[in-house]
Design a protein around this nucleic acid. Structure first.
Lengths: 339, 339
DNA sequence: CTGAAAGCGCTAACAT
DNA sequence: ATGTTAGCGCTTTCAG
């Protein structure tokens, strides 16, 4: 059996109350007894029993993260940010990978009630109003990452600004006929990126050719997948005699499909068409993709801080933090001298 | 405040003992009272308090996983297997990503003592004898995944068999001059794969050209990285007038580097040289890599089952389970007609 | 400043 | 079959 405060109390010849005080750094203990207790605790190699503490304190020092497993790359980096900021603060993380919204809701509405969690991080999935209501009522701190709800803290990427940076980069490189391949526009990020692409082009007095804009109708991952990119590119090739000289693709993974389609038609990147995409997931560098990097690690870090703040004080006003993606220049676009 | 068994007891007009029995499916309750309690529990939307249960039961129903963050691809799939098998069984998972061995040891020897965990999964990292001793003494169930220690259950991939399959595939395709690019041979998997490559070639009466075997001296990830593959390939090109017609590379990520080096020298895959690698991580399919797939999901699944078995009964003998990798045929090798 | 005791929510042994 | 009670290990009053 593990060593408890009773053991320490006995050996140090004090009451368990005093032991507890020492262990929790209560000021009302003589330096002398404090010292004595500490020595014994160390000698016995004491570790507090997390559950007993949680029960007595009504606070578990553990957070949960609900993550759609299918987002793979993105989430692993965010998670690392989450981990590395919460562990030093004495928190533990319970993760729950879900594959669909039903699973998520089940988990949220059930497991969270068990009192084992001080707060929750919800990733990349839409929060329904009924669930939102439940969290509000139960007063369980919740912060959203890569998704949004007006009643909760949210941490997102500024898609509008990111798409603007990407588009301007293409323009400055000297590309004249720029197209866009976007995911399913029912997804918010896809919509925002497309919208910003259009307005940036307009702001720079560049014409927008509708034939050069192609959005996916795929359901799987909202069109953020390789096949969608492949299809879109093939479609664009089939219905145009001439292609754009550069394409802004709404995600790295789609860009892989786009490049494959291009190569099958004997077209090279960036020789024949320049490509810029979005995300900078792990493999992007293996493809030398120029892309807009989402600061995933930092998002995880901030998410934890926000959540902890809210656990301290749930009355602070709700915030929305937007990260600006940064341009990662690799080799899928080039400076056009024929400018 | 959340609803407790006292609330249920009051409403259902029974004692808390009865409530507890009903909730735990004890047989000694009348169907009638059972029904009554269940109805009230449902109406009150009762959820047991996990910590109180853990404290009383001396069992937490939570497992922990210690994972090196730098292995990225591999771990995310294993983790999914872990998750999906443990959640339906009523367990929770606390994950702890570590970046080095020191962190791992700190976590193991400290956090695990807190009594919040029923058992632990250790991934891809060597277990020191002193830590092994500690686990043994504390009787904390531990299973190792992708690593090995004689005193604990281990789940691994059979590198010898995998390398044999890969090599034989190359031979059957008609390749005559087969080389190998391996990671740092101080790593056990790299060593095993190389050894098996040699013996398979020998068993098939094929000559082994030492100039066609190149092992990395890199430290980073034991040479399982892109740069190592790139370097090795360049080195092989520099020191040979003629190249092998096919190369077995010890990991997908190295294969990416190998292909890059080849292309820089105007050589194509599989046209000029065929490539087969190992792992089948997520991006392998984007490169059309023919590779040996490690059944990651299944490994996670089995790891949980083993751990749970051991939690039930820690006296069963230690086992070692080896998974045979499966050949995934894509396009980085081809049937040679010039056979 | 410190010891004793109550209680966190639940399980399990003990009565009845 | 069901109610009662004693812990599980810790925090936190409440006395002193």
């Amino acid at each position: 059996m593990a060593v408890t405060i009773y053991d320490i109390a006995r050996e140090a010849k004090v009451g368990i109350g005093t032991v507890s005080r020492v262990l929790n750094n209560s000021p009302k203990v003589t330096t002398e007894t404090r010292e004595r207790v500490n020595v014994v605790a160390k000698r016995l190699n004491y570790q507090p029993h997390a559950f007993a503490q949680a029960l007595a304190r009504k606070r578990s020092n553990t957070l949960s993260a609900i993550i759609p497993f299918f987002t793979n790359y993105f989430f692993i980096e965010v998670l690392q940010g989450v981990q590395e900021t919460l562990v030093p603060l004495g928190y533990d993380l319970i993760i729950h990978g879900v594959n669909n919204k039903g699973q998520m809701e089940e988990y949220l509405s059930k497991n969270v009630k068990k009192g084992r969690i001080d707060g929750t991080l919800l990733f990349s999935m839409e929060l329904s109003d009924s669930l939102a209501q439940e969290f509000l009522e139960r007063k369980i701190p919740l912060v959203l990452v890569d998704t949004y709800h007006p009643l909760f803290d949210s941490i997102r990427v500024d898609n509008v600004e990111g798409a603007k940076i990407a588009t301007e980069y293409l323009i400055n490189l000297g590309y004249k006929n720029i197209g866009m391949i976007t995911a399913n526009v029912r997804s918010v990020p896809a919509k925002e990126r497309l919208m910003s692409f259009r307005s940036t082009l307009a702001a720079n007095d560049m014409s927008i050719k509708e034939e050069y804009i192609c959005s996916s109708t795929q359901e799987k991952n909202d069109g953020f997948n390789r096949e969608a990119g492949y299809e879109s590119m093939n479609q664009m090739i089939a219905s145009n005699s001439e292609l754009p000289d550069a394409i802004f693709v709404s995600s790295d993974i789609q860009a892989i499909g786009v490049i494959a389609a291009l190569q099958e038609h004997g077209l090279n990147v960036p020789g024949d068409v320049g490509i810029i995409s979005f995300d900078d997931v792990e493999f992007a560098k293996h493809f030398d993709l120029t892309t807009m990097r989402q600061p995933m690690y930092k998002m995880g870090e901030l998410a934890v801080r926000k959540l902890l703040e809210r656990i301290e004080n749930n009355d602070i006003p709700v915030t929305l933090e937007q990260f600006i993606p940064t341009l990662i220049i690799r080799k899928s676009c080039e400076l056009l001298t024929k400018k």
